[in-house]
C-alpha cells in the first residue's frame, strides 16, 4: 500500500519534473554557461562577463532593451483599460446567452494562428489596405496612407494579441463579486466612480494583476508582431536575440541578451506585485 502510493506519486510527478527539467532548467543552465564564456580564438573559450559588458557598452542594445520594456508596459496598460470595461460588461451586465456569445466573440480570433491574425492587421493598415482606401474614398486623405511599420502598429498588434489573456482572468474575478455588494455600494451613497474605486477594483485586483503579468510577459517576449508590424525604428529586444543567434551566429551574446530579458521581466513583475501590495500566491490562487 505504502509502496504503491509512492509509485503513484512518482508517476504523477515525473511529467512535471521532466517538463521543468528538460525544457526549462537544463536549457537555462546551459544558456547561462554559454552567456558567461568568451571566445578568444577558434574553438577556444574562457569564462568572463564580456558578453554582458558588450550589452552595457552598446547604446543600441540598452535603448532597445528599455524601449521594449516601456512598450510592453504601455501595451499592458492599454489592454487593461480596454479589457476592464469589456470584462465588466460580460461578467456583470450581460445575462444568459448574450454573456456566452460575447465571451465566445473574445475567443474567436484565437482560433486562427497569430501569424494569420497579424496578416489581418497588415491587410487593414498597409498603404493599399482597407483603411487607407476608405480614407481616400471619403476624401479625408488625398494619397495612400501608410499605417504599418511604426510603433502604433506594433501597439495595436500587441494589444489585440493579448486581449483574451486580460479579459479571461478579469471576468473570472468579477463574476465572483456578488451583485448585491455593488448595490450596497450605491445604496450607502456611493456613485459610479467611488463604487468602481472602492469595491470593484479592489475585488478584481487579483485578476488585474494576473492578467497584467501574463500580458506583459507575452508582449515582452513577442517576436512575430514587432517583426511584422514594426518598422526599421521599432526594434524589439527579441529581434536582437534572434539576430545574435541566427544571423550573426553569436550564441554567447544571444544567451546574455536572453538572460537580460529574463532578469528584466522578473524585476518588473516583482516590482508591480510589491507596488500593488499583491503576492504571487494570492494572484495565482
Amino acid at each position: 500500500m505504502q509502496a504503491g502510493a509512492k509509485l503513484g506519486f512518482i508517476l504523477l510527478i515525473s511529467p512535471l519534473v521532466l517538463w521543468l527539467g528538460l525544457l526549462i532548467v537544463i536549457p537555462h543552465v546551459d544558456m547561462f554557461l554559454v552567456s558567461i564564456r568568451e571566445r578568444i580564438g577558434v574553438g577556444q573559450y574562457q569564462t568572463s562577463f564580456a558578453n554582458y559588458m558588450a550589452f552595457f557598452g552598446e547604446p543600441l542594445y540598452i535603448i532597445t532593451f528599455i524601449r521594449t520594456a516601456m512598450m510592453s508596459i504601455l501595451a499592458t496598460v492599454i489592454t487593461l483599460l480596454i479589457g476592464f470595461p469589456v470584462a465588466f460588461y460580460i461578467a456583470k451586465i450581460a445575462k444568459g446567452r448574450l454573456q456566452s456569445a460575447l465571451f465566445l466573440l473574445c475567443l474567436v480570433p484565437f482560433w486562427v494562428s497569430e501569424l494569420v491574425r497579424t496578416f489581418g492587421w497588415m491587410i487593414l493598415l498597409r498603404e493599399t489596405g482597407l483603411i487607407s482606401k476608405f480614407l481616400q474614398w471619403s476624401g479625408l486623405a488625398d494619397q495612400p496612407v501608410e499605417m504599418l511599420y511604426n510603433d502604433v502598429a506594433i501597439m495595436i498588434g500587441l494589444v489585440y494579441t493579448s486581449m483574451l489573456f486580460m479579459v479571461v482572468p478579469l471576468i473570472t474575478t468579477m463574476e465572483s463579486l456578488d451583485d448585491s455588494v455593488i448595490e450596497a455600494g450605491y445604496d450607502l451613497g456611493g456613485n459610479g466612480a467611488s463604487v468602481l474605486r472602492e469595491i470593484i477594483i479592489p475585488h478584481a485586483m487579483p485578476g488585474i494583476v494576473s492578467g497584467s503579468i501574463v500580458v506583459f510577459m507575452l508582449s515582452l517576449g513577442n517576436y512575430l508582431t514587432p517583426t511584422m508590424l514594426g518598422g526599421k525604428d521599432s526594434l524589439w529586444f527579441t529581434e536582437l536575440i534572434y539576430s545574435q543567434f541566427i544571423v550573426r551566429f553569436n550564441w554567447e551574446l544571444g544567451a546574455a541578451f536572453g538572460f537580460m530579458l529574463l532578469f528584466l521581466s522578473s524585476v518588473i513583475v516583482w516590482g508591480t506585485l510589491k507596488l500593488t501590495g499583491q503576492t504571487l500566491k494570492s494572484t495565482m490562487g
Partner: peptide
C-alpha cells in the same frame, strides 16, 4: 438610490469583503 434617505440590509448582508 445613492441619494435616497433609505438604506438597505441585504439578504446576504453584502458586507464589503475588501474592507
Amino acid at each position: 438610490p445613492n441619494k435616497r434617505p433609505v438604506n438597505m440590509v441585504f439578504q446576504h448582508l453584502a458586507l464589503f469583503p475588501m474592507m
